[in-house]
Write a protein that binds this DNA or RNA. Structure first.
Lengths: 246, 246
DNA sequence: TTTAGAATGTGTAATTTATACACAATATAC
DNA sequence: GTATATTGTGTATAAATTACACATTCTAAA
């Protein structure tokens, strides 16, 4: 009798022991997390990759990941990877999707939970000593190891969508930024050109930027004003009905 | 030495064997899928629940789920649950989120991948003989077993968002439906009232409804026209820039 | 110190989209 | 055949998005 038939037919409650037995002895699977870590540098959206540590994929790049420990929360495992590789804690990190086809990993059955992280590249430059690590322009990310290309593509698409609905982008910028910085960021993430005046109008009308009364320094042209994002005000705002649109 | 330290420090490629050993011997975890199955009946959005099969949660309701087999794709496991419980194959099914805190399940470490499914209640009435199963009005879903309340809330919120951006709702309706049916559906999912004329205008302007030149039958009032959704046309349409809005 | 270069800062008109709202037409039930 | 319920339709207003040009301010180089 198959396990699923058992479940269908039994009308009596399973004991905790019966389930424990299944959990402990039968159906265990290796679980990993993989992090797609984005950064923004030189007006280009970058992703942090590492040379594959598997000989099978020698020379190929892969996402940063590791197996989840049996007594470790999923999110904690993702934070661990991030801290390990960038030295940064307290960064934007969000679960994206779980990939679980049987043969996705050559070492056996490994299901992987993927996370998207956005970090400020300036804040961690130190920890990139490891020369196996490299920031890649997202436009040149091809042929990753394992199913990581699929994972990256999926994550990048979701980022492009989410960044239009939530103020995630600010995690990629310095705390103080000019409107040009902000527009460059959106243009890089979305790979489009935006009208400068309408972009400014849009952000000012949101009323979520705080004018710091400071100017850019060391720019070879008229300096722009600096702003910060007002997270407090944003959090207190309730997003209403967005309309049906597809 | 901890596994993560090994990864950080090693500059040499791991052998496949080394990883296989980790995958096979150390870090395996039980994996389950849980399905949040929505239906639409009597102008009410419903979710399919089952009485918990754990004595600890006797009397409580829970989502439909099962452990994933070691040689089973994640999506296949979700389809298996769905087929088992509703008799339906070929239905809308989408992964939503993975829940993986260490103590979420009393039987030990079980990470669960959650799926959202939308089905046509008319098409499966047969298979609900199992009196442990019940369609619950989503407005009365409280106190579920395990962390299933959290899972349900998460899934329901995502459904409310997604249904405004993609034509998912049609999976909950009969192939032929009136505009009133469609509006009732949206009002039930989003728990709001919509203006009838503007709703019609909106859907007609999308030009994705096919007029079947048929009328409703057996209604105690003027019958409405019947339509079907034009999936082909929708698939061929490229969704453009949606604007920055948060 | 003057000038060229480069980017900032700003407003308005036109278009598109969303909202609010009322009445005649058509079917059933009695 | 009359009451009841729901369908089907249009317009005016408000709001949001788009397209578009010029004066200002700074640096760098002559």
């Amino acid at each position: 009798m198959l396990a699923d038939e058992k479940l269908v037919l039994s009308k009596t409650a399973k004991t905790l022991q019966a389930i424990q037995s299944e959990v402990e002895n039968i159906n265990r699977i290796a679980l990993s997390v993989d992090c797609v870590i984005f950064g923004f540098d030189e007006n280009t959206l970058k992703v942090l990759l590492i040379r594959s540590d598997l000989k099978k994929y020698a020379g190929k790049w892969s996402l940063l990941g590791d197996l989840v420990f049996p007594k470790e929360d999923l999110d904690a495992a993702a934070y661990r990877i991030l801290k390990q590789r960038t030295g940064l804690g307290d960064v934007y990190l969000e679960q994206v999707h779980t990939f679980g086809t049987v043969n996705r990993h050559p070492a056996g059955r490994v299901v992987t939970v993927t996370y998207c992280s956005l970090i400020n590249v300036q804040h961690h430059k130190l920890n990139i000593l490891d020369n196996e690590l490299h920031w890649h322009d997202v436009k040149n990310v091809t042929g990753l190891a394992f199913d990581h290309q699929q994972i990256f593509d999926n994550c990048f698409k979701k980022l492009q969508k989410r960044v239009q609905e939530h103020p995630l982008g600010f995690n990629l910028l310095q705390k103080k930024f000019s409107l040009r910085d902000l527009q460059n960021l959106y243009e890089a993430i979305l790979n489009i050109k935006l009208d400068r005046r309408n972009f400014r109008k849009k952000f000012f009308s949101m009323d979520l930027l705080v004018d710091l009364n400071e100017m850019e320094q060391d720019v070879p042209h008229r300096p722009g004003k600096l702003y910060r994002f007002n997270y407090e005000k944003y959090e207190n705002r309730v997003k209403k009905w967005g309309g049906i649109d597809f």
